[in-house]
C-alpha cells in the first residue's frame, strides 16, 4: 500500500496543510507503513454488517427552544487574530 508523493501532496491539499519537503518524504513512508498495517481489516467479511457511527441509542436530540443570553460580541472577538469593530477580519474570498 505504497503512497506516491503526488498522493501525499493531494491529501495535504485537501486538508489545507502546508508541508515541508522533509515532511512530505517522511509522511510518504510512514503513511504507507500505517496503511499497509490496516490492510488486515480487508480479511474480514463485513458485507452483512452495518456500520457504527455512534454507540448511543439517541438520534436527533432537541432542546427546548428557549431564548438565553448570548455572549457579548467583544468577548466573542477577544481571541480573534484580526478583528474590526464587531467582525472577524478575513481576506477577500471573491475578487
Amino acid at each position: 500500500m505504497a503512497l506516491t508523493r503526488e498522493e501525499v501532496e493531494h491529501i495535504a491539499e485537501l486538508a489545507k496543510l502546508a508541508l515541508t519537503e522533509d515532511e512530505k518524504a517522511r509522511f510518504q513512508e510512514q503513511l504507507s507503513d500505517i496503511l499497509e498495517h490496516f490492510q488486515q481489516l480487508q480479511a474480514l467479511d463485513t458485507s452483512a454488517i452495518p456500520p457504527t457511527a455512534t454507540v448511543l441509542p439517541l438520534r436527533g436530540v432537541m432542546r427546548d427552544d428557549v431564548v438565553t443570553p448570548s455572549t457579548p460580541t467583544p468577548v466573542v472577538l477577544s481571541n480573534a487574530p484580526q478583528a474590526t469593530d464587531d467582525s472577524f477580519e478575513v481576506q477577500a474570498v471573491l475578487d
Partner: peptide
C-alpha cells in the same frame, strides 16, 4: 499533521468504502 493526513485519506473519494466505512463496520463487531 500525520493524523489529519490519515483521516483525510480515509475519508477521501475512492478510499472511503475501503477504509472509513470498513472501519465503522468492524467497530460494530
Amino acid at each position: 499533521k500525520r493524523r489529519i493526513m490519515i483521516g483525510t485519506y480515509a475519508l477521501a473519494a475512492g478510499y472511503y468504502d475501503a477504509y472509513y466505512l470498513k472501519a465503522q463496520k468492524v467497530r460494530t463487531l
